[in-house]
């Protein structure tokens, strides 16, 4: 277990950030607007050189960075991939980001990586496994990590713990922080018929080091019930903005990321979403 206090200066600014896309490089350098920091998916920057790393070197002179892993499979039944852990350690040591985060999910099993964030049952067995893996990650990477809440399309009959209880207990056992994805909260609550406000009220907001906001798509299940899909391909939905405001009222300003990974828009559209997050934080503060 790492002592969280040893990294209290490694913080993202309490402003909006965006998920970095290479096509926005020049715009970000020239007109960042309300965007104060950038997030990258760790796995896209694990090559040996070339343009991806060259762009990061330039950007890191001006912006704080969040390294967000999407492939570590922290919830996997098998052991963590030591090669991948070593690559993460290398990237984090090289870039020295203000924050490092990963997901409460699994993606690799028996050496096949499925490139999606797959769900976990909330049981004592899962809790022990996830906590052990996070201990290992923090040990190898050498810093505290944030763990992100998932978006759920289904539930496990075997689950015995609420997601908020599960996350709180993982954080207590490992000393990790949490990344609160407000869009995921809204998606899961809609899909599983629970109340997103109650979820936020049960969430340990004092452990949150970063917030995610993103757009979702609409589908339906076998019974015609609304099924929201975590698509990251459009503007943040209005009820998600409302939920975000509820969070900020309780927590105060927090580093808040706009994630837009598919059908990536022009910089102006993305920056406008970031500006809206800034306005929410200003409105709540005044």
């Amino acid at each position: 277990m790492l002592d969280a206090s040893s990294h209290k200066f490694d913080r993202l600014p309490d402003t909006p950030g965006v998920g970095y896309k290479p096509q926005h490089f020049s715009d970000i350098m020239e007109a960042p607007g309300s965007v104060g920091w950038l997030e990258i998916h760790a796995e896209n920057y694990m090559g040996a050189g070339g343009r991806p790393l060259a762009q990061l070197r330039h950007l890191a002179e001006r912006f704080a960075f969040s390294v967000h892993g999407v492939g570590l499979s922290i919830g996997g039944e098998g052991p963590l991939d030591p090669d991948h852990l070593a690559r993460l350690k290398h990237l984090v040591s090289w870039l020295n980001p203000a924050s490092f985060s990963e997901h409460l999910a699994w993606s690799t099993h028996e050496s096949a990586f499925l490139n999606d964030l797959l769900p976990l049952p909330y049981t004592e067995a899962t809790l022990t496994r996830v906590a052990d893996h996070i201990d290992q990650v923090q040990e190898v990477v050498g810093r505290r990590m944030l763990l992100e809440n998932p978006s759920s399309y289904l539930a496990f009959a075997e689950s015995t713990l609420a997601e908020t209880e599960f996350l709180r207990e993982v954080a207590r056992r490992t000393g990790c922080g949490l990344l609160l994805d407000v869009n995921n909260v809204f998606i899961s609550a809609t899909n599983l018929g629970s109340d997103p406000i109650s979820y936020i009220n049960a969430f340990p907001l004092d452990l949150v080091g970063e917030i995610h906001l993103a757009g979702h798509d609409e589908d339906e299940d076998d019974h015609g019930a609304l099924l929201l899909i975590d698509s990251h391909g459009r503007e943040v939905a209005e009820p998600v903005w409302a939920l975000y405001e509820h969070v900020i009222r309780k927590s105060g300003p927090l580093p808040s990321l706009i994630e837009w990974d598919n059908d990536v828009p022009d910089w102006a559209v993305l920056e406008a979403e970031a500006a809206r997050a800034a306005r929410v934080m200003e409105t709540v503060a005044s």
Partner: peptide, 30 residues
């Protein structure tokens, strides 16, 4: 994993829609 990679395979049992009914096509999102 097997059920994800094989669209012909039966969906795993023990997955629900949150109200106790089988997850059905919710699994197909993955």
């Amino acid at each position: 994993r097997s059920a994800i990679l094989d669209p012909e395979a039966a969906r795993p049992e023990g997955l629900t829609d949150g109200a106790g009914r089988p997850a059905g096509r919710r699994f197909d999102v993955y």
